[in-house]
Amino acid sequence: AMVGQDAMAVELKASHQFPGGKGDVRDEMVQIIAREVAAANVGLDIKVYPGASLVKANEQWQAMLKGQIDITAFPLDYASGRHPEFGATLMPGLVKSHEHAARLNGSPFMQEIKKVIEDAGVIVLADAWLAGAFGSKEKCILEPADVQGLKARSAGATFAEMWAGAGASIVSIPSNEVYNALQTGVANATDTSTGSFVSFRLYEQLSCVTAPGDNALWFMYEPVLMSKRSFERLTKPQQEALMKASKKSEEYFASESKKLDDKMIEAFEKNNVKVVTMSDKQAAAWREVAKKTSYKTFSEKVKNGGKLIDMALSVE
């Protein structure tokens, strides 16, 4: 009873775009934080709005800054229109594997990114890097030459540039029409996260998929974020409980992230889709293409862009 009324009054809104209550890893990350905080009994209640049921996916960053929501599991690149530096968190070839991603989190590169996040008034509660894959209806995509003449739909601007640099033509289609587009032939290749490859049932349309393996090109930073203003409004015990819960959520993600890739491989193999991975040499060839396309544009258009990429590439 001593917790008092002011503590009871704190209710936070957490929003994300992923399906709720169906075991999606990113939904689970947010749910874990909500559950743990509730169990800590510090008078903090987190309401989760999954599936973009409150704020549209792309608007979440802005919504958090304005105080419309407090917490979000958010693909950081979505805010690259506001902070071009974030483009580096969906940049081909910067992250090679989940182990590499873990090392990257503490690197100067990520410190630089997190500084931009913090300067914008946001703090990172839990880190999360999701791996992605390339898929094609034609032949397997291993070398840049393999995409010559393909019509590719890409999840992000930086990848689109690399595809185009390797000789593919780019089609821009909303994510919910990708299945259709692949089926009718509007597009015949695509890249996205391994989770989306499964949830959009792309194994029904593709003939070959390039899984992340040890030489992945596709990684995206999708951390759980919180508005600094909302965080500072909490009491000390509430802040501590929240940070502790976030730690748990991050650990959960670390143990699950690779399983997402395995799930994709399993689903695709079950549907007789060929699953391949890139060799060191093949991935390096792609990085060469990226150097001339996405890296180059990024260095030109973003202040410090070249430095950011070099910092990321230097992480072993």
Binding site: G149, K151, A160, A164, S169, I170, V171, S172, I173, P174, V186
Partner: peptide, 13 residues
């Protein structure tokens, strides 16, 4: 996209 087989980037947005 279909006749010229080129990238169409700005149009849908």
């Amino acid at each position: 996209r279909t006749v010229l087989q080129e990238s169409a980037i700005w149009q849908s947005e």
